[in-house]
Design a protein around this nucleic acid. Structure first.
Lengths: 148, 148
DNA sequence: CTCCTTGCAAACCGTTTGCAATCGA
DNA sequence: TCGATTGCAAACGGTTTGCAAGGAG
């Protein structure tokens, strides 16, 4: 899942855009990029604290928003359950989420499904140029279906 | 968009499930069912106040949750923008949302797209039994694309 | 040396909850 | 009557903000 965006030069990106490369920002990025799951701001903060115990919630929030502006992170809407926003590294390739109602697991899937949706929307029927496609599905995963 | 679920017998449904038919609940349902868009709880409340000025926020929230339990309403996750939960009448047929970044319009679309997704997920590749499919797409609608 | 960033703490705001009064069945 | 439901008001919890001290360039 990870393995492409986690080792690029964050410092350079920040400076290119007129921002400063700071400890808290690096720590927030590490937290996000080293996780395979979608983290709440609180989870990011607790991971950040492993590197920098003094880092503040506020800086975490500010960093997350900054990263979103830079296009390297994004908020995800994982169904309606989550009452705290979750964040993930913005992968260049689209993917979607399968959320199992039984075991709570969240699977990420890349694949052409999202691309098919994009093509479908671009057709005559809709004429809609899709930018962000957010496909969250809740249901029962194979394993839980087999178990019941 | 509406025109099928807004004139059913809410009172009967409530009583069938052991709940009481009350003014606030009818007002909340009217507010939801008479709107073509997705409303925040606050928007529902203000609409409710047209019928019953004394109705309280708390009752609106409680009614919305109740309706969701009964399967006649549901929370929608409209992209990541919305920082207040939005509600809509739960249509029996799946549909998806196209949110235009330029003009802000939210189009609802029923159609087989969502069904295609469901079938795809049920296949061998995923083995996932989809319950709720939440497909929100942000981008540029036909009209705005033509205008630019 | 500048002024962007941070940590701190307080404010915000959507949502939830405890409780006594009220109302539907 | 009796308990579900309501309005009220206070609590909650995630997120945002003002501000002075600190740190990157």
């Amino acid at each position: 899942m990870r393995g492409m965006a986690d080792d690029f030069d964050l410092n350079a990106l920040l400076r290119t855009h007129g921002h400063r490369a700071t400890g808290p920002r690096r720590a927030v990025w590490d937290a996000l990029a080293s996780s395979d799951s979608h983290l709440t701001a609180e989870e990011v903060t607790s991971r950040v604290h492993n590197l920098d115990a003094g880092a503040d919630r506020a800086s975490v929030y500010r960093s997350l928003v900054l990263f979103a502006d830079l296009g390297i992170a994004r908020e995800t809407s994982l169904g309606a359950d989550a009452h705290a926003t979750r964040w993930e590294v913005a992968h260049p390739d689209d993917h979607f989420h399968l959320i199992c109602r039984k075991c709570g697991a969240v699977e990420h899937h890349a694949g052409d499904l999202v691309d098919q949706v994009r093509v479908h929307l671009a057709g005559d029927e809709h004429g809609f140029t899709a930018e962000t496609i957010d496909l969250s599905v809740t249901g029962t995963c194979r394993r839980c279906a087999a178990a019941s």
